[in-house]
């Protein structure tokens, strides 16, 4: 379970560049989510079937409520996604991009797994072109 998210996070850390240890990996439900408080912000952590951990803002830009961690996690094609628990809009967990409306995004956070612990850093900017 000590998988490290190997996605490139270059230039993704926030100004402080520091990450915080948040919880054990097994505290993030498999194919589910959990909310965490990082730097005063409500963060949603998700774990996919493959074991990848993703961190997004818990804030659902559609319903404007802090609920994303309670969404259902699954796949659309090859894309791992979370559906908003409020009105079911789907978001690509890798980029935060809303699959139903390209102009809407979830804020993404830097995340790493070390020794079975989840660490979360600052806001991650996702290049416009990135969609795979």
């Amino acid at each position: 379970m000590s998988t490290v998210n190997t996605r490139d996070t270059t230039g993704a850390s926030d100004a402080m560049g520091e990450m915080v240890q948040v919880c054990r990996v097994d505290q993030v439900p498999l194919e589910g989510g959990v909310a965490a408080l990082v730097g005063g912000r409500a963060i949603a952590l998700f774990r996919t079937w493959e074991g990848n951990i993703y961190a997004t803002s818990n804030y659902d830009p559609w319903s404007r409520a802090s609920v994303m961690s309670r969404g259902i996690v699954g796949t659309r094609g090859d894309v791992p996604f979370v559906a908003s628990p409020m009105h079911k809009q789907a978001f690509d967990l890798r980029t935060g991009r809303c699959l139903d409306d390209e102009s809407v995004r979830l804020t993404m956070y830097d995340v790493r797994v070390l020794d079975g612990r989840v660490w979360v850093g600052g806001e991650k900017s996702v290049p416009e072109g990135e969609s795979t």
Binding site: V22, C23, Q27, V34, A35, A36, L37, V38, A42, S66
Partner: peptide
């Protein structure tokens, strides 16, 4: 629980 790492803190968004 509200937050996995801060179960005593309510979500201030509500």
């Amino acid at each position: 629980t509200s937050f996995v790492n801060a179960p005593d803190v309510p979500d201030a968004h509500i």
